[in-house]
C-alpha cells in the first residue's frame, strides 16, 4: 500500500518539568506545507525534537513517512531533513569541511551538484569558517545541506525567525521548489509565519502544549472575519461567534465566526497571525 501520510502522531505526550506537551494527535498528508504555529514556549520545538528523536516521548506513537521512528535505520533517516534556528556544527569548519562531512555522512544519498548550485545561488563564501558567517548565511547553509540529500520530509524549527525579508523570500522559493515533487512534505514551525503563511497548505496551531486545530489554511481564513463594532452592536452578536476581541476607548475590534453572524455584517479578511492573536487573547479573558 502506498504511504499517504508524512507525519502521524498518536497520543504523543511529553512532560518537561511543569510543562506538559500533548497528548497530541496530528496527521500531515504528504505533498503539502504545514505551518506549525504558536507562541514561544507553546511546545513547537519540543514536538520537533520528539520527531527527530532528540527527545523521547513519555507516551504515544510517532510515525514519519509511514514508519515508527523507533524502527528507523540510519539509511531511513536520510529521508528526513531538518533545519534549526542555528547551524549546529563546529564553528572552525569551513564550507568545504562541512561539504566533506556531509558527503561522508550521507554517502550515496548526498547530491553534490544540488549543494553546489544552492551555495552559488546563496553566494556563500567557501574559504571562511562558519564562525564568520552571519546568522542568515548559517541558515542558508543549513537549508542547502538539508535539501541536498534527497529527503522526503523537511522540518524547519524557527529557521527563519529574525532573518531579513530578502532571505526569507529565498526560503519561500526553495520550499515551493521542493514541494514540486508531490512526495515531498514540509513542516515549518514558527511563532511568526509572515510571508511563509502564503504558501502553507495547512496550519496547525499549538497553545500551551495542546494542539488547538490543524486545518486547511484557506478554509481557516474563510471561516473568520474581523470588524470594528460599537459596544451596543457587539451585544447583539451571538456569544459563540466571538473568537476574540480588542476593546478600546472608541469601540471594539472583534474576530467573528462568519457562519454565526448575519450576512449583511461586513467583515474584513483575517491573516493567520490575526487568528493566533485573537484566539490566545480570547482565551485569556
Amino acid at each position: 500500500m502506498k504511504m499517504q501520510n508524512a507525519i502521524e502522531l498518536q497520543g504523543l505526550k511529553k512532560r518537561l518539568g511543569n510543562f506538559v506537551l500533548g497528548p497530541i494527535d496530528l496527521i500531515v498528508p504528504k505533498g503539502c506545507i504545514v505551518g506549525y504555529i504558536g507562541e514561544n514556549g507553546a511546545g513547537k520545538s519540543t514536538t520537533i525534537k520528539l520527531l527527530l528523536n532528540l527527545m523521547l516521548p513519555d507516551q504515544g506513537e510517532i510515525k514519519l513517512l509511514g514508519k515508527d521512528i523507533q524502527e528507523f535505520t540510519p539509511q531511513m533517516k536520510k529521508d528526513i531533513a531538518y533545519v534549526f534556528d542555528d547551524l549546529y556544527l563546529p564553528e572552525d569548519m569551513t564550507l568545504k569541511n562541512v561539504q566533506n562531512f556531509h558527503r561522508k555522512l550521507y554517502g550515496q544519498a548526498w547530491q553534490d551538484k544540488t549543494f553546489s548550485e544552492l551555495i552559488t545561488r546563496f553566494n556563500l563564501p567557501d574559504n571562511k569558517t562558519i564562525k564568520h558567517f552571519s546568522r542568515g548565511m548559517r541558515m542558508q547553509l543549513g537549508l542547502a545541506l538539508a535539501l541536498s540529500h534527497g529527503a522526503k520530509l523537511l522540518l524547519l524549527d524557527e529557521a527563519t525567525s529574525g532573518l531579513d525579508p530578502v532571505i526569507r523570500d529565498d526560503v519561500l522559493d526553495l520550499l515551493l521548489e521542493y514541494i514540486q515533487n508531490e512526495d515531498h512534505t514540509v513542516l515549518v514551525s514558527s511563532h511568526i509565519l509572515s510571508d511563509l503563511e502564503k504558501v502553507a497548505d495547512y496550519i496547525a496551531f499549538i497553545h500551551k502544549g495542546q494542539l488547538l486545530f490543524m486545518e486547511a489554511k484557506d478554509e481557516l481564513v474563510e471561516q473568520y472575519g474581523i470588524t470594528s463594532l460599537s459596544k451596543e452592536q457587539l451585544a447583539e452578536i451571538d456569544d459563540k461567534a466571538i473568537i476574540g476581541k480588542r476593546p478600546h476607548q472608541f469601540g471594539v475590534e472583534v474576530m467573528l465566526k462568519r457562519s454565526l453572524v448575519p450576512d449583511d455584517l461586513e467583515l474584513e479578511k483575517v491573516s493567520i497571525e490575526d487568528i493566533m492573536v485573537y484566539m490566545i487573547k480570547g482565551e485569556r479573558k
Binding site: 527527530l52 528523536n53 532528540l54 540510519p74 549546529y88 572552525d92 555522512l105
Partner: peptide, 21 residues
C-alpha cells in the same frame, strides 16, 4: 568543549547515524 559550544549532538543525532555510532 567544541561539541558543547556548537551543540553538534543536536545536529548529528537526527542524521543518518545511530547514537551508538
Amino acid at each position: 568543549g567544541s561539541d558543547t559550544k556548537s551543540n553538534v549532538d543536536q545536529y548529528i543525532i537526527p542524521g543518518p547515524v545511530t547514537r551508538r555510532t
